[in-house]
Amino acid sequence: MQNIILHKANTRGHANHGWLYAYHSFSFASWYNPERVQFGVLRVLNDDTIASGMGFGEHGHDNMEIITIPLEGDLAHKDSMGNAETIKTGDVQVMSAGTGIRHSEFNPNADQQTKLFQIWLFPRVRNVEPRYQQITLDVTKQKNNFAQILSPNADDAGVWIHQDAWFHLADFDNGFSKTYSIKKEGNGMYVFVISGSISVDGQELETRDGLGITDFETLEIKASTNAKFLLMEIPME
Rank of each mutant, 00 (worst) to 15 (best):
P130H: 04
D91V: 04
V128Q: 14
A76Q: 11
T218W: 02
Q118C: 08
F192S: 10
T11M: 03
D74C: 01
T86R: 05
A51N: 04
N3D: 15
R124Y: 01
R36L: 14
D209Q: 08
P235K: 02
R102M: 09
V191H: 11
H61K: 07
Q118V: 00
Y32Q: 11
S224M: 15
H14P: 00
A76R: 08
Q142K: 01
Y180S: 09
I198M: 05
I67R: 00
W31S: 01
S224Y: 04
G90E: 08
G202Q: 11
F192C: 01
V125A: 08
G202A: 05
K8V: 02
V92C: 08
F176D: 02
G40E: 01
I135L: 12
P70F: 01
A22D: 13
N127W: 02
F172A: 03
A97G: 11
V193E: 10
N145Q: 15
Y132T: 09
Y180G: 10
E206I: 12
E105W: 06
Y132D: 10
S27F: 06
P235C: 13
F192I: 02
P108K: 01
A223G: 09
Y132S: 05
G212C: 12
Q142N: 09
S199L: 04
G40K: 04
Q163T: 09
N33G: 07
D156E: 14
L150P: 00
P130E: 10
M95L: 13
L42H: 06
L20V: 05
I87C: 04
Q118K: 01
K228Y: 01
Y180F: 15
V193K: 02
K183C: 11
V41Q: 09
A15Y: 06
Y180Q: 14
E72N: 12
D62Q: 13
T49R: 10
T11L: 12
L121K: 00
A76L: 10
A154H: 10
E35V: 11
N109L: 12
I194N: 03
A227R: 13
E58R: 14
P235I: 06
R102E: 08
Q133E: 15
I87S: 07
D173A: 13
A110W: 04
G175Q: 06
M64K: 12
N3L: 14
N187M: 14
Y132F: 14
D138Y: 05
G90S: 03
T89E: 15
T49N: 05
I198Q: 08
